[in-house]
């Protein structure tokens, strides 16, 4: 039997605690324990970006992070991006620009795009391309994903999406 540990963290704004094996990765915890299946398992070795989440506002491949390391952290998954107000400006642009085909990479792309937008609202197209280099897509050729993220640079961020001045 593998060792288990109880951890406490915030996910999509809600305080949560779970007991997880110390060998479990954050992706398995998010999908299999928390049933947040919007985060996709594409390769489980940090190569495809389908499982991108935000941990304390920083984008992370959930498959490369131990679940126990989520203890005390603030997680955002794709389920936390759409709010009661509706789709985020970036999500809307993904839909409008047809940046989605099969959609399997899309949650990871949206999370990475959300992260990039939170860091720099003056990104160039080259910055965006480099910013999503770790997110593989087999359908779209990335063009419309890049266009959606670039378009969101000009959209008004929702509350909480602005970069915090520190």
């Amino acid at each position: 039997m593998s060792l288990e540990k109880e951890i406490h963290f915030r996910v999509n704004g809600n305080l949560t605690s779970v007991e997880v094996p110390v060998t479990m990765n954050a992706l398995a915890m998010i999908r299999d324990r928390l049933k947040l299946t919007g985060t996709k398992r594409g390769c489980e070795e940090g190569e495809c970006g389908s499982c991108t989440i935000l941990v304390d506002g920083v984008s992370v491949n959930a498959c490369l992070m131990f679940a126990v390391d989520c203890d005390g952290r603030d997680l955002t998954t794709i389920e936390g991006i759409r709010t009661a107000e509706g789709l985020s400006p970036l999500q809307k642009l993904f839909v409008e620009e047809w940046a989605v085909q099969c959609g399997f990479c899309t949650p990871g792309m949206v999370m990475q795009g959300t992260y990039l937008l939170s860091q720099n609202r003056e990104m160039s197209v080259e910055d965006i391309k480099r910013g999503i280099e770790g997110n593989l897509c087999r359908c779209t050729g990335y063009k419309k994903v890049i266009a959606a993220i670039a378009g969101a640079l000009h959209a008004t961020p929702r509350r909480g999406e602005e970069k915090e001045d520190s």
Binding site: T37, I81, R82, Q91, W98, V100, F104, P107
Partner: peptide, 21 residues
Amino acid sequence: KAIPKLDGPKKVTGEARYVQD
């Protein structure tokens, strides 16, 4: 016309269910 993809909203929110889900 440039009509947005009908299954777009469920895919950008993670609501779309795949076999894995």
